[in-house]
């Protein structure tokens, strides 16, 4: 079989020479690599004291936005779900009833909206697909959890809390 890279070595059952049997040159070679790394620049960051700088386009936890009047923007059009390469988003739509105009912006709204955060790859395609500016990926980190079921985020965890304004930590301003 022809090899395409030089990364793999063919294993042979050959008898070792005296130099190889001593192992000293091999140990010395290994130690040289270890010592070389001592003088390199450290890549570790002392996390709680020192924090890594976030990229300006960092994509973290999702948020389902409300408009200025506090109504939910999402109309359950399904474009985020169809654009999602990980198939993490599911939703159930419902019709807005009379008297609910202050809750939902459009005639139709998402009665159920779930993102499976274990499936999500934070690519931001849902944000790009959204025609109503409803879903945003904030700069918030996804918190860890002990249970898999807690990673399925429903509307209770996703919808922007009432009365909050858009501030830089939870939502990136929309720039064209």
């Amino acid at each position: 079989m022809q090899l395409l890279t030089n990364r793999s070595k063919v294993v042979v059952n050959k008898e070792m020479t005296l130099m190889e049997k001593l192992y000293i040159p091999a140990i010395f070679g290994g130690m040289m690599i270890t010592i070389k790394h001592l003088f390199r620049k450290k890549v570790t960051i002392q996390y709680p004291e020192q924090k890594r700088e976030f990229s300006k386009v960092y994509r973290g936890k999702h948020i389902l936005k409300r408009d200025e009047q506090g109504r939910e923007n999402c109309t359950a059009c399904g474009l985020c779900a169809v654009s999602c390469p990980a198939e993490a988003i599911t939703m159930v739509a419902a019709e807005r009833k009379k008297g609910e105009e202050h809750l939902y912006r459009e005639e139709k709204y998402a009665a159920n909206y779930e993102i499976n955060m274990l499936r999500c790859i934070f690519c931001g395609l849902c944000e790009e697909a959204c025609p109503k500016d409803a879903i945003y990926l904030t700069e918030e980190l996804m918190p860890a959890n002990y249970d898999r079921s807690n990673f399925i985020y429903g509307k209770d965890k996703l919808v922007q809390p009432l009365g909050t304004s858009a501030h830089p930590k939870t939502y990136k301003p929309y720039t064209k």
Binding site: A76, C77, G78, A81, V82, A93, A94, E95, K108
Partner: peptide, 9 residues
């Protein structure tokens, strides 16, 4: 079928 699903689902 109103608002039940989207045609692509």
């Amino acid at each position: 079928f109103r608002f039940k699903s989207r045609v692509w689902f």
